[in-house]
Amino acid sequence: MSPAPEHLRDEGTRAQVVVAGAISGLISRFCIAPLDVVKIRLQLHYHSLSDPLAVVRPASRTPAGVYIVARDIWHHEGITGFWKGNIPAEGLYLSYGAVQFLAYRSTTQLLDKICEQRDWTIPGTAKSFISGAVAGTAATTATYPLDLLRTRFAAQGTERVYDGLIGSVRDITRHEGPAGFFRGLNAAIGQIVPYMGLFFALYEGFKPPLATVQLPFGSGDAVAGIAASILSKTAVFPLDTVRKRLQVQGPTRSKYVGGARIPVYERGVVSTMKMILRKEGAVGLYRGLTVSLIKAAPSSAVTMWAYERALHMFMKWDDGGEMA
């Protein structure tokens, strides 16, 4: 795999990278919000293998399930149902994008400096993996409370669980304490380290050979982002399902869509994964993968494309000076 190109590490000032990352996150979130809500609903669908009376809806296993869940949301909740949790989600994507790209840029520059001082040589792919993993961990931890709120609002059906964003923060603090905002964080970190490491390594490996590909919206940035996201997302998807199941635990668990049937998970990430495998089979860990991959392609393409365009635009405007 080719070394990571220098432009993603060295171009732009720190402020330009932060703003470009935030803009890319905002744009990406708005575009894929409906698919995100559908994915979360699918991941919270519970089917016990030991219950002969339980009915496995097509939505839990087939691509057609995307249509079924979307139809149910449309009929019972209206078009606004597809954007449930969008306010914390926009805050999540905005801050996540900013922290992610800033941490990625800072880490790669630090690695370059260390290598120069100690006369070390780190392959470009390894450098991209390390920087991506650090960036993903930093962004996930810093923004996790918003991720949890996004999941809980998206999991609300016709029954209202919280009276708005402020009400949700107040209720979680009162009934679950500060730790309530970090339910499932271990699963998130366990997922994001390999995911972001693989994503950035694959992205920067795919981008050089695709640089000459001419598309209506630019170059091969989008294609590289799509390919990298699909491969890395599939590899870590079971941990994403575990994270979603853990995020809706607590005193309000039974009020969410599918929550009444979801078991109580109290023994950590590994035990939760084993329990899902034992009670629901492997399909329980991969429920929602199809829509997740459908979402991953446009999300990553829009994110990387918007980031590259925004950063280059700021650099042209500022000429490398005033936003430092």
Rank of each mutant, 00 (worst) to 15 (best):
P298D: 05
S106V: 13
E308F: 07
P52W: 02
I294F: 09
D147S: 14
F82N: 06
K244Y: 13
V257C: 10
D72K: 13
G164I: 10
M323V: 03
V18W: 01
T141K: 01
Y104I: 02
Y67P: 05
T241Y: 04
V283A: 15
R118Y: 11
G321H: 14
A224N: 08
K113A: 15
Y307R: 02
Y93H: 13
T140N: 00
F182Y: 15
Q16V: 00
Y195K: 08
V161Y: 02
A188E: 07
V38A: 01
L293Y: 01
V248T: 10
G136M: 00
G91C: 01
P251R: 01
V193M: 10
F200Y: 13
W317P: 00
Y144I: 03
V283Y: 11
T151Q: 12
V248S: 02
A103W: 00
A201L: 00
W74V: 10
I226W: 09
Q214F: 06
L110T: 11
Y144M: 08
G12Q: 01
A201K: 10
M1C: 13
G220N: 09
W305F: 12
R61D: 10
S2H: 14
F82Y: 10
Q249G: 09
A301Q: 06
L285V: 09
T137A: 13
A20W: 04
G321Q: 12
F237Q: 04
H76M: 14
L285N: 09
R160M: 12
G184S: 08
